[in-house]
């Protein structure tokens, strides 16, 4: 068995008395797509936030290729290969769509501290940004400011930033939430393609059962911040704990 790319050990966070993530231990393998499910407020986004460094763990550790990264700032974790797309769209609103992606490409290339060259002179970065925009079908909106985009297009851009970072761990937090039926496939196809490329470790928070069924190699269930189930999709979906976790709020079967 290969070594895990990403691992959390007893990962915990408390907000005052409330334990939002409760001793979650989990290892993620290269090439594996793990769906993370659980009702709203279960702690999925918070779990992501501790892994990618937006929130400090109260207890426990995050390991990337065996190395402890629990205390590293978010930017450093990204530089080491943890990429994150946010549930609530989180972009650079006044900048153009192209510039948003270009910034991510530039970050990946490690060229942010160049003071005396023109940003526009870094042609390879621009070319790469254009390619990423093409992948999410946003080329025709490249010159628009983000604030002029529809919700669905902003979601696509959110994913584009993650793609541009070329991470080894992709974390998608409800990437298609609020997207229309004809927009969502752009993002879902993209995730499927990433998976098909192989070698990437993909974490996907998703509610839609059909999506999970077609993409996931494995499902983990969070319930009240704790790991409630972990296993192959068919097995986990049949289990009582999932039925219970989603009581009154079934996995949307679309």
């Amino acid at each position: 068995m290969p070594d895990p790319v990403l691992e959390t050990r007893g990962l915990t966070i408390r907000f005052g008395g409330h334990v939002a993530v409760d001793h979650v231990s989990c290892a993620f393998m290269p090439g594996e797509l793990t769906a993370i499910v659980g009702p709203n407020g279960a702690g999925k986004t918070t779990y992501f936030n501790i892994i990618s460094g937006q929130l400090p763990a109260s207890e426990g550790n995050v390991l990337l290729r065996g190395e402890d990264i629990t205390r590293l700032p978010a930017s450093e974790r990204t530089r080491r290969g943890i990429g994150r797309a946010f549930q609530l769209t989180n972009l650079f609103p006044a900048l153009s769509v192209f510039e948003n992606v270009r910034l991510a490409v530039q970050a990946k290339a490690g060229r942010g501290m160049r003071f005396l060259s023109m940003a526009s002179a870094h042609r390879s970065l621009a070319a790469r940004a254009e390619a990423v925009l093409e992948e999410v079908r946003l080329t025709r909106l490249a010159g628009q400011p983000v604030s002029a985009l529809s919700h669905g297009d902003q979601r696509k851009l959110e994913v584009a930033l993650l793609i541009a970072l070329e991470p080894s761990v992709f974390m998608f937090d409800e990437p298609t939430a609020g997207m229309s039926v004809d927009e969502a496939p752009v993002v879902l196809d993209l995730i499927a393609r990433l998976k098909a490329e192989g070698g990437h470790t993909i974490l996907l928070v998703e509610h839609k059962l059909s999506v999970i069924r077609s993409l996931a190699d494995r499902i983990i269930v969070l319930h009240n911040g704790a790991l409630a189930a972990d296993g192959p999709p068919a097995e986990v979906m049949a289990s009582a704990v999932v039925q219970e976790a989603y009581l009154g709020q079934e996995l949307a079967d679309v």
Partner: peptide
């Protein structure tokens, strides 16, 4: 200036 949180998240030490 636009979004320091995201700038940090895409790998720039703000």
């Amino acid at each position: 200036r636009e979004n320091d949180f995201r700038a940090e998240a895409i790998g720039y030490p703000v």
